[in-house]
Design a binder for these strands. Structure first.
Lengths: 263, 263
DNA sequence: CAGTGGTCTAGACCACTGG
DNA sequence: CAGTGGTCTAGACCACTGC
């Protein structure tokens, strides 16, 4: 960034040619606007599902042309942080009212359209506060010995248990997450994170392997021990690439497959 | 599309407000430009790796402002069909000089940076022209009984056989693809498709499952029968979403993982 | 230095939504 | 109808590349 641009006393410096600062790394105005919007999103100035101010309003606030805020918003929309709706406004993306199915779940039924299965049947097995194991601490940016929340759950589709997940969350931001809260909640877990903890999962990375079901996983998923399963390790990030969740899943793929688009 | 716009006698109709045609589906100018560029790419007017005309030149050709062709090019670049390089020009994307590793290969070594393995060691097992099985014909849009090329190969990393692939290609566009051609070629197979057959693989979809290694695959990959493997079924498309390749791969994941980014 | 893509502006008009 | 995002233009200037 390295710019003096602020929301109270903005001084663009691109239209008047007075950019005196000898910034070695050139940063376009729209990138600075994007960063400001990002901070407003992170600060919760606009909450998931809510509209952000209109383009003209933002242009006035930042003393910038509409085209410039437009380009900033365009990039945020391309990253799925915002959602544009012509005639209505621009809204903060949310996991709550996602068009179809779960936004980060790439598992689809082999036959039928993506959500022919109907909603997943969820069963929380446990929710404990523990000292984070070393690998979990590293993944979540915690110090050794910091407390973390561990959740175990099973997702079933059409009565067939299909996904066994072990979820790790940093203890401090998720203070108050209990088995009761999880059990009583309907809808995607990430929507709960937004509404109850103000944490938006914005992107994620997954590492996938093929593994053999161990006896416990086999029983949870109703398959024979040794059955090949997809091992999906996901790290989910909030704004500004802060890791906020480590999720280890085992997926049955006898009636489902993991779908991916390459380009 | 439903527009009268052509490369010889374009009639924008957006700046003069005289859009008399009662087109039910509105199509922005830049989308029409995008479609024209797409056709030029498909026709081979500009080949992979080559530069396309400059923005001002294209703006003149299409009788449109630079900003409009810019938006068209932006979308094609976002789809990885074009590659912009400031100060140099805009180039047709290619699998030949891909920055690092293979563009569609999502398998990464568990330790070390993405291409710490060095180049893959490739071994072609066979290359036959066969009548396409029903499922292959459906996937490639062939008629039952049409001929197809089947290629079997193994990829090894650091001496460890890791990927066993069965590749199906439509016989007509790939006339002349032989074991010799494949064996003598260096570099990514998709680069060969571009240079020898004028076919650019532009995007792909993959379906992933976990399976147990059958005896033959186990021997080819040097693992015990029953070892869990990733089954990756890929359909690759050329311009305009024409399916051109069906590729069934079995991946060892004892030292590698399939990586995916979600947003 | 000329040529390329990249940024920014200002203004006009269009398409869509909802009161 | 007013307000929103979406398109298009014209022109100025900037950053990067290579001769």
């Amino acid at each position: 960034m390295g710019s003096a641009l602020s929301s109270t006393a903005p001084a663009p410096g691109a239209s008047d040619g007075s950019s005196a600062a000898a910034t070695p790394a050139f940063s376009p105005l729209y990138q600075q606007i994007k960063a400001l919007l990002l901070h407003s999103l992170q600060n919760g100035e606009w909450k998931p599902g809510e509209p952000i101010p209109s383009e003209v309003e933002l242009a006035a606030r930042f003393r910038v042309s509409q085209g410039t805020v437009r380009k900033a918003i365009d990039e945020l929309a391309a990253d799925n942080l915002l959602r544009r709706r012509q005639g209505k406004g621009t809204f903060v993306a949310t996991h709550a009212e996602q068009h179809v199915s779960y936004r980060f779940l790439r598992l689809h039924p082999d036959r039928g359209n993506p959500d022919a299965d109907g909603p997943a049947e969820r069963q929380i097995l446990s929710c404990q506060r523990l000292r984070a194991p070393a690998d979990v601490a590293v993944a979540l940016g915690l110090r050794a010995g910091d407390t973390a929340v561990q959740v175990l759950r099973v997702l079933a589709f059409q009565g067939r248990p299909t996904i066994l997940e072990q979820i790790w969350l940093p203890g401090t931001p998720f203070k108050g997450l209990t088995l009761e809260v999880l059990t009583q909640d309907q809808g995607p877990m990430y929507a709960l994170f937004e509404s109850q903890f103000g944490l938006s999962m914005v992107r994620a990375e997954e590492k996938i392997k093929a593994v053999a079901a161990d006896p416990e996983a086999a029983e949870r998923l109703g398959v024979a021990p040794g059955t090949p399963l997809l091992s999906v390790e996901r790290i989910a990030y909030t704004y500004h690439d802060t890791p906020m969740e480590l999720r280890r899943g085992l997926y049955r793929t006898d009636h489902h497959h993991y779908r991916n688009h390459l380009s």
